[in-house]
Write a protein that binds this DNA or RNA. Structure first.
Lengths: 329, 329
DNA sequence: CTGAAAGCGCTTACAG
DNA sequence: CTGAAAGCGCTTACAG
């Protein structure tokens, strides 16, 4: 900027004013400055701008997701979409569900003076951004509620989705509907189990633990659990899978057992080839993009001055009917 | 930092030294400083650090991909993995294959003084980061080669993968192998077509344009093209699909035509439920994670002082045999 | 309308 | 070993 001023024959302050689009500078001087800017290929240093500026906005936010290459991709895109409208760029990191890493990543963003933070919480305590929050950094959690901090949060309607999945199967006449779930330490898993139970209740059916398998962490475990369940005395005639990897394992097992056209299945989370499988997969689809947008909107509302109580936004799921869930009893 | 100094009863310079882990400070003073840091919840402002520091490293890089929620997810993860080892955080953006947006995003990163830039190039001219590059910012392109700039680049072995796909089908006895490709403006598409042609040549078969459909931009177009191809006089007995969306459309059409166990298929890019489809999908899998890691390694090598000529790294693909590609003629 | 100067939060020679 | 001071690239009252 100093150099630009030298070339244009004006002070550094004038260059700053032109670069910032102030209209107080005489047009001919402004033109000279702009010419010098182009000549020198000058680009303003936003980090310095940010350091000096009164509002101190870095136009970047920190985003800590579970895994940028997996579950969180659409979420990230949703956040990006909203952020871009404001010229804000996300700094991203994958926590891999590790609370310590989550915190490290969040603090790494904070050290770079982000204006806000969106976190998919993994650890047991999410109070760590409180100091920055008090200093005006917006903090929003997404996909799961945080612990030990009263902050905004955007969630998927996990219970509602699982309810819809189970209710759909019950409506098709099934009375023995199994549930294949992930680890019960997971908030989303618990919510989905809860939705399943509510659907049973609504149909005046008892909750039968013999129809439920939890703690399935990958598709292999899911495949085994499904095989187990289906080999039992009073095997279920329909299954709810609470996660994409579980659905994959279950589909595999139904195929092996030649039960794919016999045992109905509704999965939670949509899958790319869901249409190509036989029968095509009926699923409860989450709207990751909207979830991300909701989180980003909560965040920017805070940056825009919203001082209200912490809000919780729930994004609805959609039942996508394709075939596997419509096999009648 | 000023406040910390006041509380600890030392100068700002001493605080800086302690925070930076210099061992020149007397232990008792250092302890006082650390106590004050904790007391005040002080966290260093990396942006200010970066502004003053001699080396001027911001410990962040810019990453512009096609779409964080789609094709580029594993790539992004690979970059993140390598960057994290160095405490570097990526600023990410999706270009949606729009050259102007790509440039905007890259420049937005550059304005935030990133140490390097990884770009999946979309536009026609990628010389825009040259000024910063001259100033020491590392610039690497990935997935496609850039134009009008002589820079490092990490690519998938598109030609080799397509060669392997076609050769695999030819080895199974097929003589009429079709090719379903995307837009020919795309570098990867052209490379894949080229690999397919090389496989024909290697088997002394002529290239027959009647067996090729290009410009397929989504699964619906692919489905139609596949139907078209298979309805012809001398329909192919095997197909190579050059992209994931094309594979999805093709699988759908083969199923509709009841040809899925008759016409062999090898797809480019792996898919989540590839195992669950009947027959399971044989594909040429790209290693997006490694591609991203390769790009990041090129970048950090430059930051570490590598001044050699621009390098091009090619990441190999893998043929994953599952069934659809092993149907014999 | 324009410039000289202070200062954002830091680091780093330079003295002492 | 420690501190006072200069300065990184900018913005912004304050004069003129």
């Amino acid at each position: 900027m100093k150099d630009v001023g030298a070339v244009a024959g004006v002070s550094l302050a004038t260059v700053s004013r032109v670069v910032n689009g102030e209209d107080s500078v005489r047009p001919e001087l402004a033109d000279k400055v702009r010419a010098a800017v182009i000549l020198l290929g000058y680009r303003r240093d936003l980090t310095a701008t940010n350091l000096r500026r009164a509002d101190r906005h870095s136009a970047s936010i920190g985003v800590v997701v579970e895994d940028v290459s997996d579950r969180s991709t659409r979420l990230l895109r949703g956040i990006e979409t909203v952020a871009r409208r404001r010229g804000v760029l996300p700094l991203v990191g994958s926590s891999d569900e590790d609370g310590a890493r989550e915190r490290e990543l969040a603090e790494a963003s904070l050290a770079r003076r982000v204006d806000g933070l969106v976190v998919v919480p993994s650890g047991r305590d999410h109070s760590y951004p409180q100091p920055e929050r008090d200093a005006g950094v917006a903090v929003v959690f997404v996909d799961r509620p945080p612990a030990h901090i009263d902050a905004d949060c955007a969630l998927s309607d996990n219970a509602g989705g699982a309810f819809a999945a189970a209710a759909h199967l019950l409506a098709a006449g099934h009375r023995r509907v199994g549930f294949l779930g992930g680890r019960e330490t997971s908030f989303t898993t618990r919510e989905r189990l809860h939705g399943y139970r509510r659907a049973l209740e609504a149909n005046r059916l008892p909750f039968d633990p013999a129809l439920v398998r939890m703690g399935l962490h990958d598709s292999r475990a899911a495949s085994e659990a499904a095989g187990d369940l289906l080999a039992g005395e009073a095997a279920p005639t329909a299954l709810v899978s609470a996660q994409d990897v579980i659905t994959i394992g279950t589909v595999d097992r139904l195929r092996t057992l030649d039960l794919r056209n016999t045992v109905a299945l509704v999965g939670f989370d949509d899958l790319v080839l869901a249409d190509a499988v036989d029968p095509a997969l009926t699923v409860v689809a989450q709207d990751g993009d909207r979830l991300g947008r909701a989180a980003a909107e909560l965040l920017f509302a805070r940056l825009d001055g919203d001082r209200g109580a912490a809000r919780r936004v729930v994004v609805l799921t959609t039942l996508v009917v394709r075939g596997s869930g419509e096999l009648r009893r």
